[in-house]
Amino acid sequence: MKIRIPFYMILLIVCRLNAADEPLTGDAVAEMAEQAAYYAGDDGKSDVRMVITDANGQERIREFRVLRLNGEDNKQMFFVYFNEPADVREMSYLVHKQGGGGEDDRWLWLPAISKVNRIAPGDKRTSFVGSDFVYEDISGRSLNEDKHELLSEDADFYVIRNTPKDLSKVDFASYDVWVRKDNNLPVKAEYVDGEGKVVRRVTADKIEVFEGIPTVTQSTVEDPRRGSKTVNTFSNVEYNIGLKERLFSERYLKRPPREATR
């Protein structure tokens, strides 16, 4: 069996070596956090249960499976297949993430009208199936969209401030991210508006280790403006399962692969 050293491990080692000498830049921390949160392993699979609680306390449930495959140059592909609720059952969502910049390509398969809908790049800040997560949260916001500066660090965390290069594309002014030093995972993000008021808060509530990879298994988004919150719970997490690139195509969007449905 071939032993692979995951890219993030190398990065981790390099970063640790760096840490001894000089303080990391905001860019380096942002990249570490992105690798840990979105790029673990060569590929991955997870079942997600989303509980959306609106301002009136009413709960809505979404259940879907996410498949992910890493490519070269930080390119990635995501496949999302819905199980619940019934009105979106069998709907699937495909992302081709460009990594180094450039707009990601997104498609949605709507089985009720058997149509593939291309999602406009401007829609990535749109609510993902009515939750407080946005489309961009599923596959990760491109690092090139923001400037990153290291605000502070203590024994446990780096805190970086991310300021969008193009404010017209987003509904916030900047966001601060707390990155854990021991596993590089971003564990809190606070989005603020122009007046510095928190408009969105994302937290990683629970972290478990699968195949040696620290993984967020519960996360929460709160939207104080709407008074709603969404809790994501991740289960059946697997890494390095040998997903094929061809699964992440229009062919399987319309005909979800068994990797997604079973």
Binding site: A120, G122, D123, R125, T126, S127, D171
Partner: peptide
Amino acid sequence: YQQELMADLS
């Protein structure tokens, strides 16, 4: 041509 005009309005 289609686009989102503002959040939740397309």
